[in-house]
Nucleic acid binder design. Structure first.
Lengths: 218, 218
DNA sequence: GTGGGCGCCCCGAGTTCATGGGGGGCGGGT
DNA sequence: ACCCGCCCCCCATGAACTCGGGGCGCCCAC
């Protein structure tokens, strides 16, 4: 363990930030590079102060923590996401954007330090929840199961229609694929809108995606 | 935490098995269901003794630990892989075969117990190394599709509009948010459709998502 | 400079299509 | 028998899309 690793923090919550600073301070071979509470601050600090790894919160007062990933990469620093957001969209977006790890804020201190070390060693620590989401999309992307779960009382047929819509198909095209009348598509759509409490196609798609009815990669 | 969880062990190495038994014994709410050192033993025990989760070693004298996954699933038990094998092939095969988690043997005892709890809660704990492999294949799998076509040419404003649409907003709502006229939204939409070669809102959203113009949320 | 190109903004009028309200029918489960 | 998923149909309204017409500000090249 030659040089101590410089860790940066981007976290808007006062308590948590202080807590994280302590975690870093007590970590072997870790020193605090800087600690920011807004994106702007972080970008400014990053320009001035070098660091090896940055703990990044996602939801910040002045934007999305993901927008720090580019600058971090440019600076040769790892990005370890640390957030309360455990939903699939956030997880996948972050990983797709090139995050080097994704932890939830409930992560205990010792594990946090271990994860920091792992990340610096080139590994990719994921909270179990994050890993679950990743695994799900991976499995569904590599060919197989449509999710049998019917979260909010949507019938299989309705989910089917929704999926086709999410691929940008029209009534007519969806009807052709399913081998039914466009009118019937309309009927299903009626039910869907009622059950999801929306009034337009894109709203429905958005909601369905949010609640995981349709997998994030179709 | 009503009933203690019954944990089974399949591990051929004497030392490690004893160690694991201790880890279980010292765990809150965990009891040892059975402990096997071969596949055959494990299958026999599984038929006699119920369990909630089984720690599975991959490389065993009489076969591959993955072949226990089927029986385990049939018995309603989770399978948590615990192995020295950190190579991509082992990791991916195990996950594809339906493992509920993948840990390396260097996992410290407290984290092991946490991972057991996570797994029982339906999550999927992965060792950082395992997660790395999974993430790599995922990225290369979905990256090949998306980055194929590049000819975007969408202006920032147009992307902005697209993002709002992907959240399910109408012309009117989008116009309000951007502080412009609904007609102007229409103008942008015209350009978008022309550039993306589509003729409906959901098609545009789909295409944009495919080519990474808008990520999974936003 | 003057002219073009382009991003961005605004408008009207027409067509197509999705939304949302009805109506009914068939078949499989409790 | 009933409920419910699924299928088909009609019709009114309004939204989304297509087609024109403009205007302003910026930058670059002529």
């Amino acid at each position: 363990m030659s040089k101590p690793k410089r860790i940066a923090i981007l976290e808007d919550d006062e308590h948590l930030r202080v807590y994280l600073e302590e975690v870093i301070a007590e970590g072997e071979g870790l020193i605090l590079a800087f600690s920011a509470e807004t994106l702007a601050q972080a970008k400014a600090s990053l320009a001035r102060t070098a660091c090896d790894l940055c703990l990044v919160d996602l939801r910040l007062p002045d934007g999305d923590g993901l927008s720090l990933l580019g600058p971090l990469r440019a600076a040769g620093a790892k990005a370890l996401i640390l957030t309360v957001l455990g939903d699939p969209a956030s997880v996948l977006m972050a990983l797709k954007a090139g995050a080097d790890g994704y932890l939830l804020k409930e992560t205990p201190p010792d594990q946090l330090r271990r994860s920091i070390a792992s990340t610096l060693a080139g590994e990719t620590p994921l909270s179990p929840q994050a890993a679950t989401h990743l695994l799900e999309t991976w499995k569904s992307a590599s060919g197989a199961l449509t999710r049998a779960a019917e979260g909010e009382g949507l019938t299989p047929r309705e989910v089917e229609v929704l999926k086709l819509f999410s691929r940008g198909l029209s009534y007519r095209e969806a009807a052709d694929i399913l081998g039914i009348s466009p009118h019937t598509i309309g009927d299903h759509v009626k039910c869907i809108y009622r059950k999801l409490a929306v009034h337009s196609r894109s709203e429905a798609i958005f909601e369905a995606r949010q609640m995981g009815l349709i997998s994030l990669l179709d």
